[in-house]
């Protein structure tokens, strides 16, 4: 499948997942957002040598995947596609930091390798939690949570607008790209000149669309303000979810569970 189509269906797929109905999906979007933020903050707060202390935190994404009935493959694939930047920026750690910190059955491990691995683990944890947030929470839900959190209305409206038209315009772009590819042979048609014509035409069409939208919303009484009617209630399960997960995160931050278990096993 062409690249473009793939990317398009990728967003579409996550979006479709977010409208499922599981216990996780039904949790208040604001609660999920805040819990995810706390999770990310705590994960990145570990110093760069504390690999084993990060391990227990895999419980969160694994729990969301299994309880939210999210296909594991999708999330894994996305994690591996995303951001070569992290791999690049961490790549130098093993070369530059050669202090030996561990010796595992005679093989010395340098601090650089440890910190590189910890960057990658943090990367997997933070990225998967962001992806899982959107896979288990509808985007409009996240936006109303943001509104509740006092994020400026213009910004929230922008998010909603972009979300709504993202799919419409992406389809339009996909049609344009297909039309180009069908008539492009080899490199021809992919050059920068054609690209500018495509983008320019696409931009003009988008601006015209915004005029039609404006016309349509005016005829329904638009006066410069967009009002949302939202009922956000906190259920008992929401509060339990929030308290439970945040306290687990904090306990894991305070106590080194992995090491305690390891010690116990060694003594045994």
């Amino acid at each position: 499948m062409p690249n473009f189509d793939k990317e398009y269906f990728n967003i579409g797929y996550l979006d479709t997942l977010s409208y499922r109905q599981t216990f996780i999906h039904r949790i208040n979007p604001g609660i999920k957002l805040v819990v995810t933020l706390v999770f990310i903050l705590i994960v990145v707060s570990f110093s760069k040598y504390e690999i084993h202390r990060l391990m227990p935190y895999f419980a969160f994404p694994v729990f969301l995947i299994s309880a939210g009935e999210i296909p594991t493959g999708v999330i894994l694939k996305k994690i591996f596609i995303v951001s070569p930047f992290v791999l690049f920026a961490g790549m130098f750690n093993p070369m530059l930091d050669t202090t030996i910190v561990y010796t595992i059955s005679g093989v010395p491990v340098s601090g650089g390798w440890v910190s590189y691995v910890s960057i990658i683990i943090k990367f997997i944890l933070t990225i998967s939690s962001a992806l899982l947030l959107i896979a288990t929470t509808s985007f409009p839900g996240i936006c109303s949570a943001l509104e509740k959190l006092r994020v400026p209305k213009v910004f929230v409206m922008q998010l909603l607008f972009i979300y709504r038209y993202l799919f419409v315009l992406a389809e339009e772009a996909m049609r344009i790209v297909r039309a180009r590819n069908m008539r492009a042979f080899g490199k021809h048609g992919r050059d920068i000149k054609t690209f500018i014509n495509i983008i320019g035409t696409f931009l003009i069409r988008s601006i015209e669309r915004s005029e039609r939208i404006y016309h349509a919303i005016c005829s329904r009484g638009f006066d410069g303000r967009i009002r949302l009617l939202r009922d956000i209630k906190f259920k008992f399960t929401d509060i339990i979810f929030a308290l439970l997960s945040v306290s687990v995160f904090i306990i894991l931050r305070m106590y080194d569970i992995a090491e305690l278990i390891g010690d116990a096993v060694l003594k045994f």
Binding site: M157, Q158, L160, F161, I162, R164, Y165, L166, V168, L169, A170, S206, I207, R209, S210, I213, Y214, I217, G224, I226
Partner: peptide, 9 residues
């Protein structure tokens, strides 16, 4: 308002 939204998309 609609222009900003559509241009974002």
């Amino acid at each position: 308002i609609p222009l900003m939204g559509v241009l974002g998309a």
